[in-house]
């Protein structure tokens, strides 16, 4: 947990103009940019990595049937690596998300001081 104490929700009914002003604030832009910098590459990577498996298995079955450890072949190892890949991206995201939470707190503090 970060911050001296957990701040409650911001009690304010925002008007459309206020929402737009918050959207335009540098703190918000920075938060969204930070998220994009992680989420877009991570999504492209996992989609490519995931579909490499059915594409290789479907169109190059002989290659994927090649044995690597004993009877265990490339196809099965690749499939197992998909689990590792998913868990790794999840762990990296959780770590990076702490930074998003900090940026979010900065913005919320700003909003709180502006509107309350």
């Amino acid at each position: 947990m970060l911050g001296p104490r957990k701040a409650g929700p911001v009690h304010h009914h925002f008007t459309p103009e206020e929402w737009q002003r918050i959207q335009g604030q540098p703190e918000f832009q920075e938060l969204v940019a930070a998220k994009r910098r992680f989420i877009i590459p991570a999504t492209i990577f996992f989609v490519l990595y995931y579909f490499a498996l059915p594409v290789l298995v479907g169109y190059h079955p002989a290659l994927m049937s090649r044995r690597v450890f004993g009877e265990v072949n490339l196809a099965y190892l690749f499939a197992l690596s998909e689990f590792v890949m998913a868990w790794l991206i999840m762990a990296l995201y959780l770590r990076r998300a702490k930074r998003f939470d900090q940026l979010e707190q900065v913005l919320i503090a700003r909003v709180r001081s502006d509107y309350q």
């Binding site: 991570a42 999504t43 996992f46 498996l53 059915p54 998909e82 890949m85 998913a86 991206i89 999840m90």
Partner: peptide
């Protein structure tokens, strides 16, 4: 065999879409 295991893979990787997006 292996082709059945492809479902298992898809069912987990699907959660990256849920998590990230």
């Amino acid at each position: 065999g292996f082709d059945g295991f492809m479902y298992s893979v898809g069912w987990l990787v699907a959660y990256l879409t849920v998590l990230l997006l």
